[in-house]
C-alpha cells in the first residue's frame, strides 16, 4: 500500500486485489472511518468560519474625552435666622443665633481644589460666621467671618464627591440695635 496515494484511489486498490485477506479489509475500514471523521470535523469547523466570513469588514477608533467636571450646590437656597432674645443672658452684649439646617455638596474629578465662601453684603450690620462641619472629604477651615472677599471654607478637595453641614452663626451686639442683613453667599470651587 502506498501511503502517499490519494484517498480516492482506495476503491481502485480494492478492485485490483479483491480483498484477499482480512487484515487488508480492516485497514481499509480504518482508513474509511478516518476519512469520515476528518470530513465531519472539517464540516463543523467550516460552519463557524462560514459565519465570520461575511461580505465585508470595517473598524473605527473611539476616543473618550473626560473634561474637568466641577459641581457644587447647596441643599437649600434659603436660610433664615432671627435673634429674638431667647437664650440671651442679661448683662451680655453679644447675642448669637445658629443654623445648621443646610448642607454643601460638591463633586470634582480633578485634584487639589478648595471651596471658598463670600457674601455680597458690603456693609453688614451684624457678623455672620460660617463653618463647614463634618466634611466627608477635604479639610474644613476654622470658622470664618463672611465678607466680600472669598475665604477658604474647605481645602484639599480631591477626586470624588463630598458634603458637609453648613453651620451659620449670626452674631449681634445689643449695642448695635435691631435690623436685618440679607446675604447672598457664594460658594466657589477653585484651584488650591
Amino acid at each position: 500500500m502506498n501511503n502517499n496515494a490519494p484517498i480516492f484511489d482506495i476503491p481502485m486498490l480494492h478492485t485490483k486485489h479483491c480483498y484477499q485477506n482480512l487484515q487488508l479489509r480492516r485497514m481499509i475500514f480504518l482508513k474509511r472511518f478516518f476519512l469520515f471523521a476528518i470530513a465531519v470535523f472539517f464540516f463543523f469547523c467550516g460552519t463557524e468560519r462560514t459565519y465570520a466570513q461575511v461580505y465585508g469588514s470595517a473598524s473605527h477608533t473611539i476616543t473618550v474625552v473626560v473634561n474637568t467636571i466641577t459641581m457644587v450646590s447647596v441643599s437649600s437656597g434659603t436660610v433664615s435666622m432671627t435673634i429674638t432674645g431667647t437664650g440671651v443672658i442679661a448683662g451680655q452684649n453679644q447675642m448669637t443665633v445658629a443654623n445648621s439646617a443646610t448642607s454643601l455638596l460638591w463633586g470634582v474629578n480633578s485634584s487639589l481644589k478648595k471651596i471658598t465662601a463670600q457674601t455680597n453684603l458690603v456693609a453688614p450690620l451684624f457678623a455672620m460666621k460660617l463653618l463647614a462641619v463634618s466634611p466627608t472629604q477635604g479639610t474644613a477651615a476654622p470658622e470664618i467671618t463672611l465678607s466680600t472677599t472669598a475665604t477658604d471654607l474647605l481645602t484639599n478637595i480631591g477626586r470624588s464627591k463630598g458634603s458637609c453641614t453648613l453651620q451659620y452663626t449670626g452674631v449681634a451686639l445689643a449695642s448695635q440695635g435691631t435690623g436685618t442683613d440679607s446675604h447672598t453667599i457664594t460658594f466657589t470651587v477653585a484651584a488650591q
Binding site: 450646590s73 433664615s80 435691631t178
Partner: peptide, 19 residues
Amino acid sequence: QVTATQSVSLTVNTVYKIA
C-alpha cells in the same frame, strides 16, 4: 456648577433682658 449661592438672612429683633 463651579459656584453655588445661598441666601442667608439674619434678623435681630428687639431684645430686652433683665435679671
